[in-house]
Design a protein around this nucleic acid. Structure first.
Lengths: 341, 341
DNA sequence: GACGGGTGCTGAACGGGTTTAGCGCAAACT
DNA sequence: AGTTTGCGCTAAACCCGTTCAGCACCCGTC
C-alpha cells in the first residue's frame, strides 16, 4: 500500500535520457550543463507523471548535507514555555527547508553524549544547544568545531565560541523600572524573589531594575525573599504583611511568584492594584488568567527559538551574542499609586 | 576541527580484512558468517582505535530503515501539556534506539501535506499523528498504509485503521463521580463547563460522570455553562452565585475553568472546600498552585506519548485503541460536605 | 579535407555502508 | 589419489542520488 517511489533512473528512462541529465534538470542546472529545452521538458513531465520525489538519504550521502537540525535540550517538558522555543525553532527551520530532530539530556552528561553521537551518526548539519532556563553551560566536547547555536544559555569567558541567543534580562529590568516610574511610584517598591541565588535571570533583572530606578533617584524599599514557587512566595509575602509591611508596589521575579503574592495580598485584604501594584516577569499563560490580569514582562521564547535557527543557517560566521528584547505586556495590575496623605 | 570520521573501509584495512568481514563483525553476525575469533578481535580493536562510528545515512540507504520517527502535530506550542506528550514519545523513541523528528501543521492541510512529504523524502520509518486536544481527525492520504499511531485523536468508524492512544475520559468521569460520592456529597453537585459543544473530552467526561453518579442514585443538580477559559468561567459562576445558587460541589471540566470558579467563589465569600468542594480535570501545573490546592483528574500526556511509540515499534499489527487511565490527584479542594441542618 | 569550437548529452566514479553468492584451502572420507 | 565437506573469508552488486570528465556530432573556417 505505501506506493513504491519512483527513482531517478525510472524518470530518466521514461524521458529517454541518462540519469545524469535527469539529475541536472531536476537540480535546475540545465543551463550550466546545456540541456536542450526539449529534453528538459521531457524530464520534467516524466518526473511529474511518476510523482517523482528524490530519496534524500541518497542525496545526503553524496552531498554530506542533510538539511536537518538537532535541538538538544536539557529538559523539554517541565517548563510550559519550552514548547514555545521549540515552536520558534521549528518554524524557522521549516522556513529554511530544514527538518528538526529533538533530544533531551535530562542534564545527564552521559545521556547527552550518547544523544549527540546519535545525531552525529545521522549526519545532522547543525545543533541548537538549549536550556529551558537561562544559565551558563559548558558546551560538550563533541560539539566543538561544529555549527552550534546556544539557545537560552551562554558560556563564560570573554569571546563566545558559538552564536548565542538569550533574552535581554537586563533590559527587562530597565523596563520594569520604567513601568513602575511611569506609573508614578516612588516609595514602597519591594522586590519579591530570590536575587541571592545564582540564577542568571534573577541577577540580571535585578541589576537592570536597580539601574533603571536609580535614573529617577529611586531605590528599592526592600526585598521579600522566597523560592520561585507560588507556595514559597505566598508564605514570604504573607509573613511580611503580617509583620506590618505596607508595600505600594511588588516586583515579582516571575509569574509564579506573582501568583503567590496575589494570594497573600488577597488574604490580608489588600486590593490589587489600588492598594498595591504588582509587576512580574515571564508573561506565562497564568498572567492573563489572574484577576486582575497581571502586567508582566514577556520571555520571548518563540523569538529565541526562531533567532537561534536564523543564526545557525545564516552566513554570519563571527560568533554573536544576541539579546532578544523582552516586551512589556501591559495589563491591569499596575496603576498610579493612590495618594495616602 | 570536526574530526573526519573513519569509514568502514579504513577499519577493515587496519584490521587486515575486507569491508564485508568488518561489517559482519560489527553487526554481530560473526557466527552466521563464520568469522574467526582472531579476525573478530582485530576488527573490534581497529574500530575502537579509529573511534569508528557508522554513517547511518549510508546504512539506511541500503536497508531502508532509518530508525527515525516523525511526530506530526497540529500545534505544539499553544498547549502547555504538549511538551509532555512529546517528552513521553521522545523518551520511548530513544529507549528503542530511535530518534524523533517533530513537525507542526497548524491545522493547515497544505502545510500538513508538505510536511509529511518532507518526512517521507527523508525515509522516516513511522509517524505519530498527534492532536493537542482529543478530537476526531481524518488521517491524511499520504499516511495511508504506513506505520502510524494516532496520539490523542481518533478516527470515526467502527474499525480503526491505525493504533490509537487516547486518554480514558469516560473512566475519568467515573473517577470524578467516585471522588464526589466517597466524599459524601449527594446534593448541590453542579457541572461547570460546556458539555454542549462538540468537544470529545467534555462529552465523555460528562457521560462517565453521569453514569458514575447514577450508580449511587445521584443526579447533577445543574450545569453552569461557560467556555473553557478562566474569564468565562468566572463570569458564569459569579452570575450563578449572585442569582442565589448555593452549590455544595462544583465539577469543573478543566483546571482553567476551576481557576475561574475559585475566583468567583472567593469574591462571593464562599470558602473552598468548607462551603463548596471543587473537583477538576487535567491536573495542569495550576492545580498545585491554587489555594487550596485543587483536586484534579490527570491527563496523562507523558504516558500517551510513550504508549504511542510503544505501539508504533511493537509487533502488534491489528489496530488497537488504547485508553490510558486518568489518575485522580487528590489534593485539598474536595471534602465531606458540612452538615447544613 | 583537416581542424577548431561549441552543443548536448552520457559513462562512470563516488558516497559508505549491507548482503548475496561463491572462492580457496585444508581436513576428512572413500 | 580423488572427492567431499566445512571453514573462513571476500568480490561484487546494491541502495539512489550527484558530479566530473569527456565523447559524438555538427557547423564553420582555412
Amino acid at each position: 500500500m505505501p506506493p513504491q517511489r519512483a527513482t531517478l533512473l525510472q524518470v530518466a528512462q521514461r524521458a529517454g535520457v541518462s540519469r545524469s541529465t535527469a539529475s541536472f534538470v531536476l537540480a535546475g542546472r540545465h543551463l550550466d550543463m546545456r540541456i536542450s529545452e526539449d529534453a528538459r521538458q521531457r524530464v520534467l513531465r516524466a518526473a511529474q507523471e511518476l510523482d517523482y520525489r528524490p530519496n534524500l538519504m541518497a542525496r545526503s550521502l553524496r552531498t554530506k548535507v542533510t538539511r536537518t537540525i538537532a535541538l538538544v535540550s536539557d529538559t523539554i517538558a517541565s517548563d510550559p514555555y519550552a514548547g514555545r522555543a521549540i515552536h520558534g525553532s521549528l518554524a524557522a527551520a521549516v522556513a529554511h527547508g530544514h527538518l528538526l530532530f529533538i533530544g533531551e539530556t535530562e542534564g545527564d552528561p552521559v545521556v547527552e553524549e550518547k544523544l549527540i553521537s546519535d545525531f552525529l551518526d545521522r549526519q545532522v548539519d547543525a545543533f541548537i544547544y538549549a536550556s529551558m532556563f537561562t544559565r551558563y553551560v559548558r558546551v560538550p566536547k563533541l560539539l566543538r568545531g561544529r555549527r552550534v547555536v546556544l539557545l537560552n544559555c551562554l558560556t563564560r569567558g570573554a569571546r563566545p565560541a558559538h552564536h548565542t541567543v538569550i533574552p535581554d534580562e537586563i533590559g527587562a529590568g530597565w523596563s520594569a523600572a520604567r513601568v513602575i516610574i511611569e506609573s508614578g511610584h516612588r516609595d514602597g517598591i519591594h522586590l519579591v524573589g530570590d536575587p541571592a541565588e545564582r540564577v542568571f535571570a534573577a541577577k540580571e533583572r535585578l541589576a537592570g531594575l536597580k539601574e533603571g530606578l536609580s535614573t529617577a533617584g529611586i531605590k528599592l524599599a526592600g526585598t521579600i525573599d522566597c523560592e520561585w514557587w507560588p507556595d514559597s512566595a505566598y508564605e514570604a509575602v504573607a509573613n511580611a504583611l503580617s509583620g506590618g509591611l505596607r508595600p505600594r508596589a511588588l516586583i515579582c521575579l516571575n509569574d509564579r511568584i506573582a501568583l503567590g503574592a496575589y494570594q497573600a495580598l488577597r488574604e490580608s485584604a489588600f486590593t490589587i492594584p489600588d492598594d498595591v501594584s504588582v509587576l512580574s516577569f515571564d508573561d506565562s499563560d497564568l498572567a492573563a488568567w489572574l484577576r486582575p490580569k497581571l502586567t508582566s514582562i514577556s520571555l520571548p521564547h518563540y523569538q529565541l527559538g526562531w533567532q537561534a535557527v536564523e543564526l545557525l543557517l545564516g552566513q554570519q560566521s563571527e560568533p554573536v551574542v544576541m539579546r532578544i528584547p523582552m516586551p512589556v505586556r501591559y495589563r491591569a495590575s499596575v496603576i498610579k499609586p493612590v495618594d495616602l496623605s
